[in-house]
Amino acid sequence: MMDNESLKTLFFETYHGEEIVNCIQCGSCTASCPLASMMDYGPRQLFALAREGFMQDVLSANTMWFCVSCYGCTVKCPRDISITDHMYALKKMAIKHDLKNPKSKMPMMYKSFSDPVKKFGKITDTSVIFRYAFFHPIDIMKNSRLAFNLAKKNRLEILIHPIKNLKGFKKVMTKALELEKK
């Protein structure tokens, strides 16, 4: 695991996290956040920790995994900090530096989404849910009534029609991943 100081440098320099030094800790982000009640720290407190260098605490928090990308915080921030983008950055850092929070189910949700994209270039709701169900079956069982309802209305698309130039698409994505790792 990287030390706090290097993680902070990475967050500030590679991911433009440096703008959080402008934060006045007003909490309008946390107050606008639809899922703040679930978070270990609200975004406000997360930034307070990050700028003082407690990056390991930050990256092992569940906060960013509860971000639903509604941008409610970003448009209200009196210091114009692009909070949602920082949440993305912290998620990416947590994954890359292996600090991802085991308490959150979201990494699995994202994986269930990106797997069919990698394979077919597209998703369907059903393809994502099926994959996710494999890891968290209870969440799906709780929604059996919905599944039944959708099936009845012919809205469960089990099959994904892959994109036509799948071969080319895969080459593009392989290249992108290659550049990502550099």
């Binding site: 993305y88 998620k91 990416k92 979201m106 949700m109 994202y110 990106s114 597209k122 994109i163 994505m173």
Partner: peptide, 15 residues
Amino acid sequence: NCCGATSYWSTQDIP
């Protein structure tokens, strides 16, 4: 193709 949406913003840079 799929736009990638939140799942990709949250996990990868270039893709």
